[in-house]
């Protein structure tokens, strides 16, 4: 795009063709630079994703979410090691919060994964939320596409430490793992809506600690109270596949205990998604949500343009126009302007 690429090992990738080609060929440097592009956003990011998007769809995308300090990074490390032992390559996207005051961030998830650093089969990238609220960052879905196109078999997306309502991860992961720890709440917490409902798999981490059995029990009894998952119909009279019941598994990520069972459960969930046909339905939902979100951001960005609304907002201030009517007016005008582009 700008500048000229130099030859050899010091190549500085500035053009889309070179970057995309090297990324697809497995270059770590190209993947890293591509992630910088999508994180920065803008035209070249859109162009890069557009180029690579047809080459995605191979990876198993697993979301790891849970409270701060529940051990998501340590679990990501353990899962990455488990996947490597099964001969798979791994990409990790670890999201940490940006400061609401300075906009800066300390990205510290990598510290838990230092011993993976020298394995070329593991690629770890940290991203900051930069004001995004759903537990991920704006570029997370694009980042997953890049890791997928680069040939990573397993992609682990680690959210920021979340509370109860940050559920964006369900919009990009095939399998959502909710990480709990003993002693963070009672059975009323387990009854609440939100985060716990989106789990395809529950992990009670730090299961060597006191109270783990109780947490396991509470999660399991919560799950028995949920309405049974819609049983997917089998193809033409064939028996329907058993609905998926989220397993509740104990683990101690730091001691690497329970990781094999967890890996089996991840594979089991992917197998279920495929045999039940749920994979296609889920994928359709995920891309639908992603497109809608991108469109909302585009609209929001245009609406944020100053002067677009000043005169109308003045009328609202004078009570000549209602807030709702004014908002509709803005959108109508936006449509008119867009059609002229």
């Amino acid at each position: 795009m700008r500048g000229e690429a130099e030859e050899g090992a010091t190549t500085i990738m500035t053009d889309l063709d070179t970057l995309a080609r090297e990324l697809l060929a497995g270059s770590t440097r190209a993947l890293a630079r591509g992630l910088t592009w999508v994180e920065s956003g803008g035209e070249r990011a859109e162009a890069l994703v557009a180029r690579l998007y047809p080459r995605t769809g191979r990876a198993h995308v697993v979301g790891l979410t849970g409270a701060p300090g529940s051990g998501k990074s340590t679990l990501a490390r353990a899962l990455a090691r488990g996947a490597r032992a099964r001969g798979r390559t791994v990409g990790v996207l670890a999201v940490d919060p940006s400061s609401p005051f300075s906009g800066g961030a300390i990205l510290g998830d990598r510290i838990r994964m230092n011993d993976l650093a020298l394995d070329p089969g593991v690629f770890i990238r940290s991203m900051a939320t930069r004001g995004a609220l759903g537990g991920l960052c704006r570029a997370a879905a694009d980042g997953v596409d890049l890791l997928d196109a680069a040939g990573r078999d397993l992609i682990l997306v680690e959210t920021v430490g979340v509370g109860q309502d940050e559920v964006d991860v369900m919009r990009l992961a095939h399998t959502v793992v909710v990480v709990s720890v003993p002693g963070l709440g009672d059975d009323v917490q387990a009854l609440k809506a939100g985060l716990l409902e989106i789990a395809d798999l529950h992990v009670v981490n730090k299961a060597d600690r006191e109270g783990a059995d109780r947490t396991l029990g509470e999660l399991r009894s919560m799950l028995t109270l949920l309405p049974p998952a819609e049983s997917p119909a089998g193809p033409d009279g064939a028996p329907a596949v058993e609905p998926w019941v989220p397993p509740v598994l104990p683990a101690s990520a730091a001691r690497e205990e329970g990781i094999e069972a967890l890996m089996d459960a991840l594979d089991g969930h992917m197998a279920y998604l495929k045999t039940s046909g749920e994979l296609d339905r889920r994928w359709r939902r995920m891309v639908g949500a992603r497109v809608l979100k991108i469109a909302q951001e585009l609209v929001a960005r245009r609406l944020a343009h100053p002067a677009a609304a000043d005169a109308d907002v003045d009328r609202v201030a004078r009570r000549e126009l209602s807030p709702h009517a004014c908002a509709r007016l803005l959108l109508t005008r936006l449509g008119e302007r867009t059609s002229h582009v």
Binding site: S99, S102, I106, G108, A117, S126
Partner: peptide, 19 residues
């Protein structure tokens, strides 16, 4: 650097140059 609005990755103690 964080307070100046930068994204700062911190990797902890005792790393090798390779890491």
């Amino acid at each position: 650097l964080r307070d100046a609005g930068m994204d700062v990755v911190y990797t902890g103690l005792h790393r090798t140059p390779e890491e």
